[in-house]
Amino acid sequence: MLDLRSVTAGYDKRAPVFRDVSLSVAPGEAVGLLGPSGCGKSTLARVAALLHRPDAGTLHLDGTPVRHWRHRAPREQRTAFGVVFQQARLSADPRLRLADLIAEPLRATGRREGAAGRVAELAATVGLTADLLTRRPHEVSDGQLQRACLARALVLRPRWLVCDEMTAMLDASTTAALVRVVEDYRAATGAGLLAVGHDRVLLDRWCERTVDWAALTAPTTPAPTCPPGTNKVRRGN
């Protein structure tokens, strides 16, 4: 169980991005989190994946309260999450070949032996050819790079997947291919999923349950940031 309770988080304590948000994902469950861009759902995803310490609120991971985030979090807790971000270009170290990119978590956790085999196996799963594995990020397309980033997220066999707008920059075919990889992995391992996005059609098709960001924040904050397309200035000064 991934259980976020009354979480307040942001990048400035005086002006948090959101307040008092609760969300839970059952083991093996796929939850879609739907919201407009810039509303804070990515921050919530980072809190859930132990990448951003919230200002207030609690996070329980399979019943255990999480007390530390980022490097302070125990390694087993951190690596229980596989994370995929929106912009593949920014989430790949530009110096690493795709094979090294995928193998990086194995090396970081000291599991070098069998790394090559695991990389080859995952490359086949996400549809990358051996030729592509020898290239650096700037030599492949966005879609191919995102495939590698998904492979990296799966390499440590996480129990939870957090996909933050994973397919927002991708074409329909690559989107369908990556979602299928995620779903095959979940079917095989029973991993839970938190998929963040702004495309209701996609999330409804992908996830068992889609939660509206507005519904999570509505009780306390009426219209905190930027409802879609309104003529509202985000920051007036």
Partner: peptide, 22 residues
């Protein structure tokens, strides 16, 4: 602040490894 550092943290990299390798 770039997501590839987030990815490294999530991949279990230590603080030292993130600094030296990334």
């Amino acid at each position: 602040a770039r997501p590839h550092i987030d990815a490294a943290v999530s991949g279990g990299a230590s603080r030292w490894r993130v600094t030296v390798r990334h």
